[in-house]
Simulated scan of single mutants.
Amino acid sequence: MLIIIGHPDIEYSLVNKRWIEEVKKFPEKFTVHELYQSYPDGKIDVEKEQALVEVQGSLIWQFPVYWFNCPPLMKQWFDDVLTYGWAYGSRGTQLKDRKIGLAVSMGSLEQDYQAPYDLTAVLRPYEMTLHYVKANYQGAFSLFGANTDASLVTITPQAINQSAADFIEFLNKFYNMLNHEQGY
């Protein structure tokens, strides 16, 4: 399973950094691909990215939600990599039936994401993208209150560690479901 991470400042992250640390304990199951480390100049190698996706059975797109969207390089990845003829269109079948999920963190509290602007609404463009490319959307793992500004931090280290354990559980269910479907 490929986990594509779009966090622009991972060293200062409280949550995404911790999730990555936990995921890296299971290299036999999960491949971590950090966009900002791979492309510090912002120039995405589309063929390399497409080849990386092609060899993986499933994907997780992991990023912090900024202003109800993903960080710029993650958005650029979607724009550059999910091309006509590869991801969609009459011959674009590389994501068809592929299981793809999201892992997102929000700096704000859950109460700040109320209908009609709840997390489901915020993530709808990603769900729509996955529908458009005929992928099989697997839902989202999320955590609120992950702000790194010391005056705004609302999450405890214990809650961050618990979220990392919960994230691994989310990924393992996903991973085990895939292996069951493939007959492993």
Rank of each mutant, 00 (worst) to 15 (best):
Q111W: 15
D118Q: 06
P72Q: 01
W77L: 01
T93P: 04
D45Y: 12
P72G: 13
E49F: 02
Y137T: 06
Q62Y: 07
K134I: 00
D45V: 04
Q76S: 05
E127C: 03
A87F: 03
P64W: 03
V81A: 01
G145D: 13
D45Q: 14
R124Y: 11
P71T: 06
G57A: 05
T120E: 15
I100D: 09
Y113K: 08
D112I: 09
Y137H: 14
P71I: 00
I60N: 03
M106S: 11
S105L: 05
N69S: 10
D79A: 00
T93D: 13
W61I: 12
K134F: 04
D149N: 13
K48A: 09
P125I: 03
A135Q: 09
Y88P: 04
I44R: 06
G92H: 14
H131T: 14
K99S: 01
Y88S: 01
N147L: 07
K43I: 09
N136P: 03
D149W: 04
T120A: 14
N147P: 02
L59W: 12
E47K: 10
D112G: 11
P71V: 04
K96C: 07
E54T: 14
P71D: 08
I44Q: 07
Q62A: 01
V53D: 08
Y88T: 10
A140P: 03
Q50V: 01
E127Y: 10
W77C: 00
F144D: 04
L109H: 13
T83H: 07
Y66T: 01
N147Y: 08
A121E: 15
W86I: 12
Q138A: 05
A115N: 12
L73S: 00
A140G: 00
A146Q: 04
V53W: 14
I60G: 12
G92V: 13
S151Q: 11
M128K: 05
A150L: 12
L52A: 03
Q76R: 10
A103Q: 07
G57Q: 11
M74N: 06
